[in-house]
């Protein structure tokens, strides 16, 4: 299992791995927003957390469609299915390595992008915390979509359409926890805990569902 994690991480940073395209996409989205809304610093710092969350959500969708497809195309998936006790564990490991290679660099870059949006240090810290807790849920939900579209060529858009309704709760609680941290009457703890619960819930349900789907896709 450890070998699979290391191999996937290594692949993500090699040619065509696409670990850093997420950050570039994140950068593009965050930098064009100030051009679109104009030089209103107050407005920017107000909508900043929401923009960062939307950008992070869209950036983490990138590359999710290749989560299993690449392995299926070169025959690796067949061998992995044959050799493993539990596809659920395989999917979990693949999600973990995808998150470590694509999600984590994105989150670590958030403080810099927060400055672009004229955000307070507290707001940046809140976005950082909610993203760390919330983005794994996006990966686990995405794994289900990736498994469902594994045999479809160009299934990327279909994947996004399939999973976006499911990740909306993650977005809602992520953003509301962030606003809870910076605006006084709104609570921080309860949306943050619900966000944690969503991630834990999908970290179980996602791999089980995706593993079952992969087992059906070996025609």
């Amino acid at each position: 299992m450890m070998s699979l994690l290391l191999r996937d991480m290594r692949l993500a940073f090699r040619v065509g791995g696409g670990a850093l395209t997420g950050i570039l996409f994140f950068l593009v989205v965050v930098t064009i927003v100030p051009f679109a809304v104009g030089p209103d610093l107050n407005l920017l710092s107000k909508i900043g957390p929401a923009i960062l969350w939307i950008a992070a959500l869209l950036a983490s969708l990138l590359g999710l469609d290749r989560l299993f497809q690449q392995d299926r195309e070169d025959g690796t998936l067949d061998v992995i299915i044959i050799q493993s006790h539990s596809l659920t564990a395989i999917v979990f490991i693949k999600c973990l390595s995808h998150w470590l290679a694509n999600g984590l660099p994105l989150i670590l870059a958030t403080p810099i992008f927060g400055l672009f949006m004229n955000m307070e240090p507290l707001a940046i810290a809140a976005v950082l915390a909610t993203l760390i807790v919330g983005t794994p849920a996006i990966t686990f939900i995405g794994a289900v979509g990736a498994a469902a579209t594994v045999s479809l060529p160009r299934g990327g858009l279909l994947l996004a359409v399939l999973i976006l309704p499911l990740v909306i709760p993650v977005l809602i609680f992520g953003v509301s926890a962030t606003y809870g941290a910076i605006q006084d009457p709104a609570p921080f703890t309860s949306p943050f805990l619900i966000l944690c619960a969503l991630t834990l819930f999908f970290s179980v349900l996602g791999p089980i569902t995706a593993g079952w789907m992969l087992a059906q896709s070996t025609d």
């Binding site: 070998s3 699979l4 191999r7 290594r10 692949l11 070169d74 025959g75 067949d78 061998v79």
Partner: peptide
């Protein structure tokens, strides 16, 4: 199982592939 495809990752070296 050795299927029609080789189950090799082209971006990795031969040693990394076999080690995995």
């Amino acid at each position: 199982y050795l299927g029609h495809q080789n189950a090799l990752k082209l971006a990795l070296s031969v040693e990394e592939n076999l080690n995995f």
